[in-house]
């Protein structure tokens, strides 16, 4: 294992210390239990938005705390769900009297820990809504699985719901918006390489030099199918076609295309993927009205990408363009 770390046990703690030194104007970092809140929390009268998950997906979620996006994030150990005590403290810290929305990715650990945290917060008199993101079309048969995983749409939902909360929409309205975004977003990812969890010290799975894994999740868990590496255009088709078919998106629909790096793939390759994704969208009559390109929901140093398509309407376009000021996403402010 070759990594820029000191001690595998201290990876998350030292990362959080770095964040606290870098962004004191945007966020406050708390330790034991670990959570990050926006610097001006709680914002009175505004719905608080809390998310969280394993570390190793940076900038998600801690990098999305700030004006116009999340009020708090709870980082777990690498690829491990955070715990209910973190979520409870974060929820209390951002409750400005209008209730708190938990945005939860559909992973068994995240679901169970957030359920327990929501029960504890309600017992303290805080209104809680929980919305589960499950947008991964790679998981086909949801009757016999834990259901579709939450992946790229999570980033978009956090941005859009954050903007809606800034407008002082109610908890129910923000939660309904989050469900709508989840319903309109679809993702699929792939890996060219595995990744190494620091405290494990060896790659999560073996992937031969000339093979790739299609339908990968974000925790280095193996995907749906393994095959010889193909060209960027062929890979983009293999990701885009199941997405477009799934919703289904219709000719004339407006969409946002989000091309995400799994961590190790450079921007030059993401634009090659975006190029083909854009052309495929056009072929289906979809109008690409917004885009996001870069590493936003990563799996440590894994090389690979994911594509997310989100159907847009006027409200979503307005919320997408609204100012956001966080360590990992910033425009208009």
């Amino acid at each position: 294992m070759k990594k820029l770390i000191n001690n595998p046990e201290n990876v998350v703690k030292e990362e959080l210390e770095g964040i606290s030194y870098a962004h004191p104007d945007l966020v406050k970092v708390f330790f034991d239990p670990n959570y990050i809140v926006r610097a001006d929390a709680p914002v009175q009268g505004k719905v608080g938005i809390v998310s969280g998950g394993g570390s190793g997906h940076e900038p998600m979620h801690g990098g999305f705390v700030g004006m116009g996006m999340l009020d708090a994030a709870c980082p777990g150990a690498v690829f491990t769900s955070p715990t209910p005590d973190q979520m409870l403290e974060a929820t209390k810290a951002v409750n400005g009297g209008a209730g708190v929305l938990h945005i939860v990715k559909n992973y068994t650990g995240d679901i169970m820990n957030f359920e327990m945290a929501a029960d504890l917060a309600r017992a303290e008199g805080i209104d809680i809504e929980s919305v589960v993101i499950d947008d991964d079309v790679a998981v086909q048969d949801s009757l016999y699985t834990a259901g579709r995983r939450g992946v790229g749409t999570t980033v978009l939902a956090e941005k859009l719901c954050g903007a809606a909360a800034e407008e002082r929409r109610s908890l129910k309205q923000v939660a309904d918006l989050c469900r709508k975004v989840n319903g309109w977003g679809r993702s699929m990812g792939m890996a060219l390489t595995s990744c190494t969890v620091p405290h494990v010290g060896k790659p999560t799975f073996d992937l031969p030099e000339d093979e790739m894994e299609i339908g990968i999740g974000i925790h280095g868990e193996p995907g749906r199918e393994r095959m010889k590496v193909k060209s960027a255009d062929e890979i983009t088709e293999m990701l885009m076609e199941p997405i477009v078919k799934d919703l289904p998106y219709k000719s004339g629909d407006e969409v946002l295309i989000f091309v995400n790096s799994m961590g190790g793939t450079p921007l030059i390759e993401l634009y090659i993927i975006y190029r083909k994704a854009y052309e495929i969208a056009q072929k289906h009559g979809l109008k690409v009205v917004r885009h996001l390109i870069g590493p936003y929901i990563t799996s440590l140093e894994m090389a690979g990408c994911s594509i997310t398509l989100l159907k847009m309407d006027d409200d979503l376009k307005k919320l997408w363009d609204a100012p956001v000021k966080t360590p990992g996403m910033r425009w208009g402010a």
């Binding site: 239990p33 777990g76 769900s81 955070p82 715990t83 209910p84 068994t108 650990g109 169970m112 359920e115």
Partner: peptide, 12 residues
Amino acid sequence: LLSTVGGAGGPL
């Protein structure tokens, strides 16, 4: 265990 394990193992 609830506050230190994380994952699914913590709640279970």
